[in-house]
Computed example of a mutant assay.
Amino acid sequence: MKAMLLPAFGDSFIAGEIPTPTPGAGQVRIKVEASSVNPIDTKIRIGAVPAVSPALPGVLHGDVAGTIDAIGDGVTGFAIGDRVYGIAGGFKGTHGALAEYMVVNPAMIAHMPTSLDFAEAAAMPLVACTAWIALFNKAGLQAGDRLLVQGGTGGVGHIAVQLAALAGADVTATVSSDQKAEWALRMGANHAIRYDKWDDVKAEAQARGDLGFDLVFDTPGGIGLDRSIEACARNGTVVGIAGRNEHNLGLVHSMELTLKFAFLIGYFVDPSKRQQDIGDMLAKMAAFVDAGKLTPVIGESYPMSEVNEAHARLERGGFMGKIVLTQDLA
């Protein structure tokens, strides 16, 4: 089969041919129709996360949408011809989605929302599961909580805003432009704050005695995490998904905050985690989508053969929603 291969860390992807995989017992094969680009994919490409990276030369990307075309022994709940989506590989010991076919563990996929096409479905899995884990499993979000979502129109952020609004939280999203502020409000945020006006907003909040947010979900990391800690109320909770920088944790101590991180890739490398949780979350997201309560947003789309350009676009930033890749290798 045809695939986009990464020869070595730091290289560009190249087109190549590799054997078409056959599903073993407890596996299914997906005829890949679409994938999407996540920051973890760019980190794997440059060799920044060797602990979770596949052997090279190899096939990357975990987000996938397509049709099941072969099923191994012992698989239940799926049939040939089913349209499915998932975050199912691209990491150590797994197949990747930048190919014509991908063999996966069915625990990490679900039936696609019937109202979405393949590209829209492929935009969802990693970001939707990450948002769910952060908001509900880690932060314990409840109706009425005051929540700040840093990066509220990004890949994870735009899903988090919608899920939190659906749960009845009072949601504030940080954004980089007036256009994105309007978009965040349309997705369900109660308030939107531009990053470049952060200090003014913070001063106004302090002047009126605002004690901060109950929960803060930090998606960008870096200085965003420092601001998230500053924005949290005493005894509040900050959940991050990017923690590779150095930070002064003095406020975490003095304000008695709880600081947690969500790392979805742990489901691929930590045997104590139940992989079926991913499939269950995806089934829940599909129901939300088909009920009109959750909408994935595609910022830009590229053919799969242009994955190098798609990675470069993600690294430049400035877009809303997700960057997707549609199948053109077959």
Rank of each mutant, 00 (worst) to 15 (best):
A122R: 05
H158N: 11
G154K: 09
F136K: 02
Y85R: 00
A110W: 13
Q142H: 14
A134Q: 04
T94H: 13
K197A: 02
T76V: 13
E120A: 15
T94D: 04
S177Y: 06
V175G: 02
F118Q: 06
P113W: 13
Y85G: 00
A123P: 09
V104W: 08
D82V: 03
A70L: 02
E182V: 11
Q142P: 01
F118R: 01
A169T: 11
T172W: 14
V161I: 02
H95F: 12
E100P: 12
L148V: 03
K92S: 11
F136M: 02
H95V: 00
T76A: 14
P113A: 10
D196R: 13
A123G: 06
L185K: 07
L185C: 01
A160I: 04
D117C: 01
Q179E: 15
K180N: 15
E100V: 06
R186G: 03
H95R: 12
G188S: 04
L98S: 04
V84P: 08
K180W: 07
P106L: 01
M187I: 00
A88W: 12
V156C: 06
G140I: 11
A70D: 14
K92L: 08
T172M: 14
S176A: 09
F136E: 02
D82Q: 06
L166M: 08
A121S: 14
L166Q: 15
A139M: 14
F78M: 02
C129W: 02
A160G: 08
V84A: 06
A184G: 04
L141N: 09
Y85E: 01
V149C: 05
N105D: 15
T153A: 04
D170K: 11
I133W: 05
G72E: 09
L147K: 12
G151V: 05
Q162F: 00
T172D: 12
V75L: 05
E120I: 03
V149E: 11
D170H: 14
V156S: 06
G81C: 14
G77Y: 12
D117Y: 00
W198E: 00
N190I: 00
G154S: 09
S177M: 07
R146N: 14
V175E: 04
G77V: 10
V75I: 04
Y85W: 12
D178K: 12
V161S: 02
A160Q: 09
D145G: 08
M108S: 10
V103N: 12
I193S: 10
T76G: 15
N190D: 11
R194H: 09
L116H: 03
M102T: 06
A97H: 03
A173L: 07
G140W: 12
V201C: 08
I193R: 12
T172Q: 14
D170L: 11
L98K: 02
L148R: 06
A192M: 08
S177K: 03
G151A: 07
A169H: 10
P125C: 09
N190Q: 07
V84Y: 08
R194K: 15
T130R: 06
G152L: 02
G144M: 04
L166H: 15
Y101V: 09
A181Q: 00
P106V: 00
A181R: 01
Q162G: 00
D178F: 07
A139I: 06
A143C: 03
D178S: 14
L147G: 10
E182M: 12
S115M: 05
S115D: 09
T114P: 04
T76L: 03
